[in-house]
Nucleic acid binder design. Structure first.
Length: 415
RNA sequence: GCGGGUGUAGCUCAGUUGGUUAGAGCGCCAGAUUGUGGCUCUGGAGGUCGCCGGUUCGAUCCCGGUCACUCGCCCCA
């Protein structure tokens, strides 16, 4: 039976050129996170299904229609992780890290959501993630935002994104506001759009962000969140804003910015861009003070964000070309072994060396050219008999002979 | 999950108002130049016209379904 020779919908292969951009994103992230004294954590790409369904909220889209869930051979329900935070919170509890708070983690890896693919939206995609667990103070939110801003700056995309900021208040404020919204929108239910009517049950805050023109008119007169925030919530939000201003991190308060996942409280933020079509969010996160308790642990505050590596890669544009190799070209069967030794020595000396496997010199030079080789080391029988090797400068088109024992040193000129 | 668009060579795309041998550029291979690349010239290979079915004497073209990509919605990184 012939296999279907295509990758599964919404998945794709990362070829070397794309992989360089991917790696640039991850390496920059790593460097910045380490500078903020975060430690790397790697959690499994699958968890027991309850880890996600319990923490994300049973009614959320992610849980109800987007998870890759299967029963394994032991009969357990397993889910490929659709996001990072739940798994990291679980790891925090599993490993007894309550003793060691605050914990500052960074991580990156694949995520899985069964959604309809679009540009910047895949079924297997990759995220960067940072979390601070065990800090209730707003400084943690500010530090995380600063980390994000540094990352985006170092990737050269800070000028393409806007930090949108909002607060969802603490549980009490949010619950009161939610009730007020439900009451208000229920009075207008007949004129609400179909989508928003569904949101009234599932996530009434979402209605505020509706794109429907009819909804907009109703929303304009809806109760304001600021009127329902208690003093503690207002103070917390003020601290976050003041902290950002002290660090000169530009932001825009967006009162319509809300969250689909249940566990968020207080700070919610997104770095958005116009450059990616409908998938404008490049990095997003917030505070989740209720999550760990929801999972069955002690009440523990947390903040974090995640960022889509593929989306960042699309934003950073083309990379400058990488380092250029040196091509080692044996001429004649008798020179094969010497050529291999030369390549080996040059590599051990830190040179990037390509050796093709077949073809005459013309073919091998053509290949060297395609690889953007800086120089070719041509190992010929005649020269070998005289104890010399030819180095050809592929940019200048000139070549010189150097004694065999000084070859590797001579290559330093072509680094 | 819902709605629109697209699918022809490795890549980017022409084309056929249904007719017998489907084209270009780039790329690839070979030769001019058998121990010297890039440039040039000459030649060549490469296609189930996404897949399955229907209509038709005949379908790459029309119709239906399906798969994939893409744009928007929902939601989200």
């Amino acid at each position: 039976m012939a296999a279907r020779l295509q990758s599964v919908r919404g998945t794709h292969d990362i070829l070397p050129e794309e992989a360089r951009k991917f790696r640039r994103v991850v390496e920059t992230f790593r460097a910045v996170a380490e500078r903020y004294a975060f430690g790397e954590i790697a959690t499994p790409i699958f968890e027991f299904t309850e880890v996600f369904s319990r923490s994300l909220g049973e009614a959320t889209d992610v849980v109800t229609k987007e998870m890759y869930t299967f029963t394994d051979r032991s009969g357990d329900s397993i889910t490929l992780r659709p996001e990072y935070t739940a798994g990291i919170a679980r790891a925090f509890l599993s490993n007894g890290l309550q003793q060691e708070t605050p914990c500052r983690f960074y991580a990156w890896g694949p995520m899985f959501r069964h959604e309809r693919p679009q540009k910047g939206r895949l079924r297997q995609f990759h995220q960067l993630d940072v979390e601070i667990i065990g800090v209730a103070e707003a400084q943690a939110d500010v530090e995380l935002l600063a980390l994000a801003y540094d990352l985006l700056s170092e990737l050269g995309v800070a000028d393409k994104v806007t930090l949108e900021l909002n607060t969802l208040g603490d549980h009490e404020s949010r619950a009161r506001y939610r009730d007020a919204l439900v009451k208000y929108f229920s009075a207008h239910v007949s004129t609400l759009s179909e989508d928003s009517r569904a949101r009234l049950d599932k996530n009434p805050l979402r209605i505020l962000d509706s794109k429907d023109a009819g909804d907009r008119a109703i929303i304009n007169n809806a109760p304001l969140f600021t009127d329902y925030l208690n003093e503690a919530s207002l103070a917390f939000f003020a601290d976050v804003k003041r902290g950002l201003e002290a660090l000169h991190i530009p932001y825009k308060v967006n009162p319509r910015l809300v969250r689909g996942l249940d566990y968020y409280t207080h700070t919610a933020f997104e770095f958005t861009t116009e450059a990616l079509g409908a998938q404008g969010t490049v990095l997003a996160g917030g505070r989740y003070d209720g999550l760990i308790e929801e999972l069955g642990g002690p009440a523990t505050p947390g903040v974090g964000w995640a960022s889509g590596i593929e989306r960042l890669s699309m934003l950073i544009g083309d990379l400058e070309p990488g380092p250029r190799p040196i091509a080692v070209i044996p001429v004649g069967a008798a020179t094969q072994e010497v050529a291999h030794i030369i390549a080996h020595d040059a590599r051990r000396a830190g040179h990037i060396v390509d050796m093709s496997y077949r073809g005459n010199m013309g073919k091998r030079l053509t290949r060297a050219n395609k690889l953007r080789a800086r120089a070719a080391v041509i190992v010929g029988e005649d020269e070998l008999a005289r104890g010399v090797i030819v180095i050809r400068d592929l940019d200048a088109g000139t070549q010189t002979e150097v004694p065999r024992d000084r070859l590797v040193a001579a290559l330093d000129a072509f680094r």
